[in-house]
Design a protein around this nucleic acid. Structure first.
Lengths: 188, 188
DNA sequence: GTCTATACAGGGATAGAC
DNA sequence: GTCTATCCCTGTATAGAC
């Protein structure tokens, strides 16, 4: 892995662990094992490097979700596969956590990948739900847009509850809860 | 409002806006309109002051939720009242946002109020759901614990989605979605 | 109790040598 | 391209005057 690559990967890790405000150029350089000059040769500064890191993390997240949501099975089964995927729950969502960073959220360029990721995810889940409804798998009066938002929100909020409790239990309860509510809308 | 009180209130605002890592003693003192010495007279340092602020914010949140959840109406109506309460959605949850702060979450004392608040909230919602079920208002196979976690998570995740989108729409969709799923479990 | 002065590490970036 | 040296500002806290 070359220097530029190491800088991006180190930044991704630190943004996940400590957020944007909590991540210093020094810490990035040390983790990447490079000097001051290298970072400022490849990137104009902290925001520029963070942007490269955030874009890659956002792409990763979309790719993983697409894997589960485009898989085989009914709408319910695909959503179940997505929600029950193995996750590092206590570390939180590397995209969602950045929404709490004032310097990210007030910067239109840095915020854009976050917006695109969650927009995409809600739409993708909405399509799965709409398909399930059309195929007669799900109740005909189920609202795909609102339900998709609720599912994504449950995941993001599950991370919040887990971190508050220092335990994965509330996350797992929340996922179980929303899956239970959705299961009741599966036509039998 | 005396000096000590102004310091706590200024800290609450800044923790909400910028989080723990993003909030400096200087900024607190300036917002409170006091000098360096005053802050270190009343509090031992930033963590001590933050603890006082966080505890008060957590109490506030519980008190508001109790107002809606102990009100009149069916279980569904009380949960609806809680979820549809007017909120400063784009500012996020003043308690939930602290779960993203590494210096808060790794400090057992600072984390405790967060854990207690969400524990209490899940239990309180769980009791409302269990009561509704006993009274025959809700489906008998509804899981109160898991459903309560899903409802709290939807709220917390709704804030995340709204901040990513710089719009209240995903929050409102998520709330609508979970209420729609819950409504389908109301016995008719 | 509250203020100003001071201290020192770290954040964030630039300059210039190699 | 990468390194070290340097710069200025802020974060966090202490000291001591009033």
């Amino acid at each position: 892995m070359d220097t530029r690559e190491r800088l991006i990967e180190s930044t991704r890790e630190l943004l996940w662990e400590r957020g944007y405000v909590g991540t210093s150029p020094r810490a990035i350089q040390q983790r990447a094992g490079v000097g001051q000059g290298s970072m400022y040769h490849h990137f104009t500064g902290k925001p520029d490097l963070a942007l490269a890191a955030v874009r890659r993390t956002a792409e990763d997240m979309r790719a993983k979700a697409e894997g589960e949501l485009s898989g085989p099975g009914t709408a319910y089964e695909r959503i179940e596969a997505y929600l029950l995927r193995e996750r590092a729950v206590l570390r939180g969502c590397p995209v969602g956590r950045l929404t709490q960073d004032p310097d990210v959220i007030t910067d239109a360029v840095l915020r854009q990948p976050l917006e695109e990721t969650f927009d995409w995810l809600r739409r993708r889940l909405g399509r799965v739900l709409a398909e399930g409804r059309e195929r007669g798998e799900l109740a005909s009066d189920l609202d795909p847009v609102a339900t998709a938002a609720a599912i994504v929100a449950t995941l993001q909020g599950g991370y919040v509850l887990a971190r508050a409790a220092a335990s994965v239990e509330p996350f797992e309860d929340a996922v179980k809860g929303v899956l239970g509510l959705l299961a009741a809308r599966v036509t039998s």
